[in-house]
């Protein structure tokens, strides 16, 4: 029983009831959450950027950092607890991907992250059933393994569920 804290570019999974997986202050980063109803395992990745082609070495060292390497890495990790290797039957939720108040596309990294993640998910035949993306505020997200409940928080707002 414990709390697994994920930093930027980390990913983790657990099937131990009583565990929580948590990540703090998602700005333009996106948290991808997988819940497997069959094995009761949950997983999360804290993704910073859409595409690993800008730094292959970083992607090898920290696959959770980029959308295109994080999702296969998280699936592989969860397969160790008996989940389907291609994520069949997995429930997917997405949150984060905020953007600063900007009229210029260059700084919409939150949006580009979300789009890249959805594309990779589609390539596995997966799609999100719930998402809380965009806006101009930071989010902290946690998921409890036993309840499978995703809780979000942001300063100045009451907590909410996804």
């Amino acid at each position: 029983m414990g709390q697994i804290i994920l930093g930027v570019g980390d990913y983790g999974a657990s099937n131990a009831p009583g565990d929580d997986i948590k990540t703090f202050a998602l700005g333009s980063c996106v948290s991808v959450i997988f819940l497997d109803p069959k094995t009761r395992a949950v997983g999360m990745a804290h993704i910073a950027l859409p595409d690993s082609s800008i730094n292959k070495a970083k992607a090898t060292e920290k696959p959770g950092y980029f959308a295109d390497t994080a999702i296969p890495a998280l699936l592989e990790l969860m397969a160790k607890s008996g989940c389907d290797k291609r994520g069949k039957g997995m429930v997917v939720k997405l949150c984060g991907g905020a953007n600063v108040m900007d009229t210029n596309d260059t700084f919409q990294i939150g949006k580009r992250n979300a789009l890249a993640i959805k594309k990779i998910l589609w390539s596995f035949g997966m799609g999100a059933i719930a998402e809380d993306l965009g806006g101009n505020f930071s989010r902290t997200v946690s998921i409890s393994v036993s309840a499978g409940q995703v809780t979000l928080s942001s300063p100045g707002k009451p907590n909410w569920q996804l």
Partner: peptide
């Protein structure tokens, strides 16, 4: 400043809540 906030390192409640001047 904006890049720091986008990367998840703001100073609490105000993070990301500013205008970016294009």
């Amino acid at each position: 400043d904006n890049i720091a906030m986008m990367g998840g390192f703001g100073t609490g409640a105000d993070s990301m809540r500013y205008k970016l001047d294009p």
